[in-house]
Design a protein around this nucleic acid. Structure first.
Lengths: 240, 240
DNA sequence: CGTAGAATTGATGATGGTCAACGTTAGTGG
DNA sequence: CCACTAACGTTGACCATCATCAATTCTACG
């Protein structure tokens, strides 16, 4: 079985054979976890770096009122912050969304990989920049986009990210997120999200049904979202 | 004149004398810039790392509709992303808010500093983790806090950040941000922000007037905001 | 087949946006 | 020193969006 983490890193630059096998070795003992399993909670002392090899996870925060804000979705190949081990305390939790296979890389091993494999180091820095760009894009969505734009924008993002790692089968995409999850990510209520999804369906832009996203009119969806994929940084700077 | 960048790094761990002087040397030739000056725009090819030594700046995005979302405020001592030079294109712009003194550190010099000064490297990674935590906190605010909570939360954040770097004079704090700027950061209209500020004033929690924030009742403000400072990561893990 | 969680729909109201007017302040040049 | 200006701040009236509450239907799964 291929290694999704390695596959993702390879989209940000070539890795020599030795580096690739070191990365594979570092993630060769994943744990299989059920859905809704906390990898780590807000307030916990961080330990190793988590790498999601199969399945989906999310970063989240719970407010005093009990409401939840989802901060990011982690798809196969995604990982948590590189230097998380420098902190005394997590400022958010990370939880599986579906059942998942998750590897951990200890701080020591991570340091060693980074020191001895510059192409790995470079790819990790780029993934981090993409994650930051994604957070900025979410802030922009929440602050300045209407609900239909916001929903369309997230769908564009998830679809493209899925395509980049080979998860999508043309206009269809397996999206294992309930409307409740999506609403918690988008800063709206499930009820309103449901109505917005209906509107997008009636527009003929996209249809979401229980675990599967169909993009019926990509151009229209992109136009509604005002989507610009620049923050995913698929075009990188040449070596140097 | 002290070096705000160095001061900030020192709050994240000690730096030996040689490292401190290398950091000072790297930022010893700042440019003086007027307010509202773009350091770099969305779409530009990134170059050196920017370090704000005096004055304020902000990260921002402009939407197709022309509206602006401010993504972060950079106070004296703050800098832009460490590895920004790996990207082909900026996904957001950075602009001065006030007149400012801004140093640049070339990618080569930054690499050299990181390689030869592990305590600097560590402090830079922590600043980045704090910046990420701040973005997550903003996402949470925009998604799940009411406007009054959101305003109160940002004021708590800015006040605390100011205090950490010695900018604040007890309950007063020089906050050089117009209501328009704050509204663009908070995802609301200036009109509504104005009403919320009035409400906070009437509550006796805080008062903002032209460039100066007075926190009249810190406990009340914190309570309204539901503020938890954990994402600023002032408590760090012991060395190791 | 029964149950729990998720999705869907309707009715109603609060929050916050829009439009428009006016007051205030700081900076500029006569 | 004062008049002028432009940007910012403040307030009111009105309306759109989205949350809330509640009921019903759908779907997966034991």
């Amino acid at each position: 079985m291929s290694n999704r983490f390695l596959d993702k890193l390879l989209t940000f630059g070539t890795l020599d054979a030795e580096t690739a096998s070191a990365v594979e070795a570092a993630t060769s003992q994943p744990r299989s976890l059920p859905a809704k399993h906390d990898l780590i909670r807000e307030g916990d002392r961080p330990g190793p770096v988590f790498v999601v090899l199969e399945g989906w996870a999310c970063r989240y925060k719970i407010l005093p009122s009990g409401t939840r804000q989802i901060l990011a979705f982690l798809m196969p190949g995604d990982c948590c912050d590189l230097h998380i081990g420098l902190l005394a305390e997590m400022d958010h939790g990370i939880q599986t969304v579906t059942s998942a296979r998750v590897a951990t890389i200890s701080r020591e091993l991570m340091d060693e990989l980074m020191d001895h494999h510059p192409s790995f180091e470079r790819a990790m820095y780029i993934t981090q920049l993409v994650d930051e760009g994604t957070m900025r894009s979410w802030i922009t969505s929440m602050g300045r986009r209407t609900s239909i734009e916001r929903v369309a924008h997230l769908m564009c993002e998830l679809y493209l990210r899925g395509r980049h790692i080979g998860l999508s089968d043309a206009p269809h995409f397996a999206l294992p997120l309930s409307q409740i999850m999506l609403a918690d990510a988008l800063g709206m209520t499930p009820v309103h999200l449901n109505r917005v999804l209906k509107e997008l369906r009636l527009h003929g832009a996209m249809a979401l049904k229980r675990g599967s996203l169909s993009i019926t009119d990509p151009a229209k969806l992109t136009r509604i979202a005002g989507f610009d994929d620049n923050y995913l940084h698929r075009h990188l700077r040449g070596a140097g």
